[in-house]
Amino acid sequence: MPGAISPAAAQGSQGAPAPLGVMLSVNGVEQRLALDPRTTLLDALREHLHLTGTKKGCDHGQCGACTVIVDGRRINSCLTLAVMHEGDSVTTIEGLGTPENLHPMQAAFIKHDGYQCGYCTPGQICSSVAVLDEIKGGIPSHATADLTAPVQLSETEIRERMSGNICRCGAYPNIVEAITEVAGRQG
């Protein structure tokens, strides 16, 4: 891990900060990047690694289109700097499945028509996959009736947990059906 970088030494020409090195493991592949420290994880994925499946919606953590899974947890990639993720494992929609080999959640979204325009879909799917892990891991939500009992899977739980992923086409009922089906199969 690099130590302190003095502000003076790190200042590049024209007032732009000098690039910083960061190593990310993205969908299982080690990626070494030199980035302006202002680069969000979202912009690193899209603009530097050309993984454009992850979408930029609001860029302020309100819509969830940028949701990716970092070290097993879903986060808004727009609200974190890439340089804060040295050594972290990032899974994007491209890492979950491929057109030839769909992730079960991707297949269920297709089967249940869990989208219309599709822009929010990569974020919805990354979030959904992580939501089922959170329920399995016993992490409670606002919809959990009893904090001291095991978390039960229900439509109410899924809806509450997916509230950070906005779909302006309003495909919510079908998204819930898709997630419910995958959850049932995982038993």
């Binding site: 130590g3 003095s6 502000p7 202002r38």
Partner: peptide
Amino acid sequence: MKPFTYERAN
């Protein structure tokens, strides 16, 4: 964002 420098604290 305005430019800034960055360091990780030890």
